[in-house]
Every structure is written in structure tokens, then in C-alpha cells.
Amino acid sequence: MSVIIETRKLSKTYEGAFGSQDVVALKDLDLVVHGGEIYGYLGPNGSGKTTTIKLLLALIFPTSGEIEILGEKNITARKVRQNIGYLPEGAYYPDFLKGEEVLRFYGRLYGLGGKDLERRIDAVMDTVGMTHARKRLLRGYSKGMRQRIGLAQALISDPQILILDEPTTGLDPIARKEIRDILARLRDEGKTLLISSHELLEVELICNRIGILSYGVLQTQGAIDELLTDREISILVAGTEQGAAQLEGTGITVEDTVGDRIKLRVPDETHVYDALARCKAAGLQLVSVAPRRETLEELFVRVVGAAEAAARKAAV
């Protein structure tokens, strides 16, 4: 699989003004995004996600390191720019323009014009499902419709790469699903998507690979299936809370209690028989035992938590 975006030892430090401390926003980032995949770029607020995106778009400049996009080190080259579509978080599109006028404006910036531009507008309006509203002023658009117009402007040159910053934030569940379906369709068409997001469920549903960033350092990167392993075992038992309380301090985690059903978790299969024996001793009846896949949220919390602990330790 070809590498479309690659950074090597990419670092960005913001100099502190008036003698205040410098801020390391990004440190030695080795990011690899392959062609035809959706890469989920995750991290808590202030972890360096937007800094990375701005560096990839040459809106800010690296302190050190290299960026290569489509094999080009000159990322402002026309060949590169022509092939990148970008949707910033919470971007504004002028209210006084119609949907199609917004696309005409952005299309012209790519050097498109005449019938070619009109054909592209037709095509992207169709892709984002906005053909019915293309002649309406943006002031009459809902938030979801504005976001779809934002996505359409990113697609107007039919770029190979799409960089999307929080594409579903603030949208209702239906609009979110619609955007998610569009993104999956674009991936199926062969486009490469780099999505920065806080919506972990969305990312888990559509991304092929992810990278988790914390304190400006890429903590982990890889295929989502490899990172989310079947690590733990889930045990469902029936019994009383008093019975469940007897399991405390035995390495068994009580996850949830609904009625008389108690959901337990053990770290791996080697602990299962021991846990079952303890349950029996506590008067709990076995309902089911199943391998449990770690969720992306859990992986995220684990990785970011470890990074925070390391940072706190280093600060002491």
C-alpha cells in the first residue's frame, strides 16, 4: 500500500512571548498514512492534532523534521495542493451566498472554470446529498447542511487526500450518520482520509488505522483491529450485590449491575477458572463467559492515561 502522507521527526515548538516558557506542541512525530485508508487521528484537547494538520497544510511551519505528501517534500507545490481537500473545524461560510456559489468560489481557487466547474459542482452536490438545496442561501441551512457544504468545498477539485478536522462534532445523530456514510463511500472510491476527531465511536466504525497523540507525542499508531485486541474476558453472573461485594480485591472487576445480573471482567483467560470458583463460593450463578474486545474508548483512556502518568512523573 502506497504511503500518501509521511512525517519524519516532525516537531513544532511555539516560542513563549515575553520570556514565558516555550510550548512543545509536537515532538518527533512519525506519522504514516497509506493510500485508500481512513486514518483516525486522536488525542485529547491540546495534544497537537490541529498543529499537525496546520503543518501538513503549511499554515504554520515546523521547528524541525520533514513532511512528505504524495512523494513531494515541497508541500506547497501545486501538484500537492491540487490533491488536498481540507475541512477545518467550525469553519464559517458566508450566509449571503447560495450553496452552489460557495462551491464556485472554492472551485475557482483551484483554477477550475466554465463547464468543468459546473460539472464538479453537480458531482459534489450529489456526493454530499445537497442537490436539492444548492440554490438556497446558506443562512437557511441547518448545521448538518453547512457541514455537508464544507465537505463539498473540500471535494470540489476531486482531491486524492481529504483532511477533516472534527467533521461530525456538534451534529445530531442522523447528520452524523449521514456524514459517516459519505466518508465511508469516499474511502471506497479510493480516497485517503485523515480525520481528527473526539468522536471515538465514529472513528471505530469507519477508520482503518488510528494514531493516538498525547502531549505532542504519537503514543501509538496502527491498524484498529491490531490495536483493539481480545484482551479481556467478560463473565455474566446472577446473584446479589452482597455476593458481588465478596469479589473485591480478587482481581475481578465488577463492571455493571442490572437487576440480579452482574457483569464481571477478568484480565485474560488464565484468570477465568479462578474467577468462576470465587463466584461459586460467593453464591453467584454463572450465566455466560465471553471474550471481550477492548473498545477504542478504553484504549484511548489507557494510552492517554499512561502518557499523563509518565508526564507527571517526569515533571516531579
Binding site: L57, T76, Y86, A91, Y92, Y106, L109, G111, Q153, S157
Partner: peptide, 14 residues
């Protein structure tokens, strides 16, 4: 302020 500049300068515009 309204981030329009990001959508413009990410296009082939110097």
C-alpha cells in the same frame, strides 16, 4: 477569526 483563511490557503493559492 472565522477560519475562512484556512480553507483558502489550503488550496493552490499563494
Amino acid at each position: 477569526e472565522n477560519r475562512v483563511v484556512y480553507t483558502i490557503l489550503s488550496k493552490p493559492v499563494r
